[in-house]
Simulated assay, not measured.
Amino acid sequence: MNLRSVDLNLLVVLDALLDEAHVSRAGERVGLSQPAMSSALERCRHLFSDRLLERGGGGMVLTPKAQALAGPIKEVLAGMAALLDRAEPDLHAIRQTVRVVMADLPAVAIGAALQRRLARTAPGITVAVMPWHGAAAALEGLGRGGVDLAVSVFPSVDSDFTRRELLQERYRVAMRRDHPAAAAFDLDRWLAYPHVLVSGRGDTRGPLDEALTRIGRTRHVGMVVPSFVMVPPLLTESDMIGLLPSRCLPERVRGEIVAFEPPIAVEGFPLHCAWHKRRAGDPAVQHVARLIEELVAALPA
Rank of each mutant, 00 (worst) to 15 (best):
N9S: 15
P72R: 12
T162G: 06
Y171F: 15
H179W: 00
F154T: 00
V288N: 08
V23W: 02
G134Y: 01
D282E: 08
L249T: 05
A137E: 14
M1R: 15
V100F: 01
V221C: 03
S152C: 12
L8F: 10
I241S: 00
L299W: 06
R51S: 13
R170V: 08
I125Y: 11
V231G: 06
R290C: 13
P300E: 11
E294Y: 02
V127N: 07
T97Q: 07
R29W: 02
P245G: 08
G57R: 13
V221L: 11
D188N: 06
A174E: 03
G202S: 07
P262F: 07
Y171Q: 04
M60C: 05
N9P: 02
P180G: 06
P245D: 05
L234K: 00
A289D: 06
V224C: 04
A174F: 08
M1G: 15
G200C: 09
S33V: 12
V61E: 14
L197R: 08
N2A: 14
E75T: 13
H179C: 01
V229F: 15
A298H: 03
H272S: 14
P207Q: 01
G200H: 07
L53E: 14
I73K: 07
G281H: 04
R205P: 01
D50R: 05
M223L: 15
E42F: 07
L41E: 05
K74M: 09
M130G: 03
V296R: 13
G202L: 14
G222T: 05
I292R: 11
T126N: 08
F48K: 06
E140V: 13
A26Y: 05
